[in-house]
Amino acid sequence: MNLDEFYRASGTLNPKLTILIAAGKHFLPVNELTIDKDSLLLGKTSQSHGEFATITLDQFMARTRQLPITTDLRTSNNHQLVFGFRIVNKSIVFY
């Protein structure tokens, strides 16, 4: 999935949805965005006030609007391409 595909698919969603990554049977918070060549790496390494903070959809949009829309979305731990997302409770979960 690239940014253009994600923008089109999430354009009507609540901007306050938090962003998570599916990791096995668990969901991990996305709180770090790193650019690596033509990819945006979604990660969970930064800590805030002793707990992991999760960015929201509107924060994600604000942080990525200057990137080319062809930028791929990948996980930071293994650089696996994100194929889509689903809504779980009040979160967007990339998988």
Rank of each mutant, 00 (worst) to 15 (best):
M1S: 14
N2E: 11
D4S: 13
Y7V: 11
R8W: 07
S10M: 10
G11K: 14
T12D: 15
K16R: 15
K16N: 15
L17F: 02
T18W: 07
L20R: 12
L20G: 02
L20A: 11
I21P: 00
A22T: 14
A22L: 15
F27G: 02
L28D: 03
P29Q: 07
N31P: 07
I35D: 01
L41Q: 10
L42Q: 00
K44G: 06
K44V: 00
G50S: 09
G50Y: 04
G50Q: 01
E51C: 00
F52M: 06
F52I: 00
T54Y: 04
T56K: 11
D58M: 15
F60K: 05
F60D: 01
A62G: 09
A62Q: 13
R63C: 07
T64V: 15
L67S: 06
L67V: 13
P68H: 06
I69W: 14
I69S: 15
I69Q: 15
T70R: 05
T70M: 03
D72P: 05
D72E: 12
D72F: 03
N77R: 09
N77G: 05
N77K: 11
N77H: 08
H79N: 10
Q80K: 08
V82H: 00
F85T: 08
F85S: 04
I87Y: 03
V88I: 04
V88C: 10
N89E: 14
S91I: 04
S91E: 10
V93H: 01
F94V: 12
